[in-house]
Simulated scan of single mutants.
Amino acid sequence: MEIILILLVVYIAIFYFLKMRPEKQRRKEQEAMKKALVPGDSVTMIDGMIGNICAVKEKTVVIETGADRVRLEYATWAIMNKGVSVDQTQQ
């Protein structure tokens, strides 16, 4: 009985340190990146759209994309990363 309890605690600790803790750190870094965005920054959206930020609002950002200077408004949760993603520069 004691061995089963010890194994259960060990498995929970392993799960926490290998899965939950790194995910929490990634989420924290992502939120810090989104709060630090300013107009002029280049961003890649989750749908693959690449553009420069024109305006930052509380829950949305306005990006300008392409030579036509088309402006699109996205929710901040849709930002994948700051800058141009490496996968998209190779295409």
Rank of each mutant, 00 (worst) to 15 (best):
E64S: 14
T89K: 12
W77N: 13
A67Q: 09
V61R: 02
F15I: 15
G48S: 04
C54T: 14
E58F: 04
V61Q: 01
G66Q: 12
Q30R: 14
I79E: 02
K34N: 01
E58V: 05
K57T: 02
K28L: 10
L5C: 05
E31D: 13
V84K: 15
E58K: 07
I14H: 04
K35W: 00
K34Y: 05
S42Q: 08
E64Y: 11
M1Y: 05
A13R: 03
K82E: 10
L18S: 12
G48F: 07
V84M: 15
M1W: 06
G51V: 07
D41S: 11
E31W: 01
E2K: 15
P22M: 10
A32L: 07
T89Y: 01
V70L: 12
T65H: 08
A75H: 11
V38L: 09
R69D: 10
N81A: 11
A75F: 10
L18K: 12
T89F: 09
M45E: 05
A75Y: 08
V10R: 00
A75C: 05
Q30N: 13
I53H: 10
I12D: 02
I14D: 01
L8G: 12
D87K: 07
S85K: 10
V56A: 00
V43L: 05
I53T: 06
D68R: 12
T65Y: 01
R71K: 15
V70S: 08
K19T: 13
E31I: 06
G83C: 04
V38A: 13
N52H: 08
S85R: 07
F17W: 15
Q88C: 00
Q91P: 03
M45H: 09
A32W: 04
I53P: 03
I14A: 03
K82P: 02
E31N: 06
G48I: 06
V9T: 09
R21D: 01
I50M: 06
T44L: 02
V10Y: 04
P22D: 14
R27S: 11
L8Q: 10
F17S: 03
A32P: 01
I6T: 11
E2C: 06
V61W: 03
M20L: 15
P39H: 04
P39N: 08
P39Q: 09
I3F: 13
Q30G: 07
I50F: 10
L37Q: 00
G51N: 01
N81V: 04
D68H: 10
Y11I: 13
T89W: 09
V70R: 13
M80F: 14
I63K: 03
E29N: 08
M49S: 09
K35T: 00
F17A: 03
E31C: 02
V56P: 00
R71E: 15
A75W: 00
D47L: 06
L72E: 11
P39F: 07
M45R: 03
I3R: 09
E23N: 13
K35A: 04
N52W: 04
F15M: 13
I12H: 02
R71N: 13
V84I: 15
C54H: 06
T44G: 07
V62K: 06
K59M: 01
R26F: 11
L8M: 08
I46P: 00
E64N: 13
I79H: 02
L7W: 15
M20Y: 14
R69F: 03
L72V: 12
E29L: 12
I14K: 11
I63Y: 03
W77P: 00
S42P: 00
M80R: 13
F17N: 09
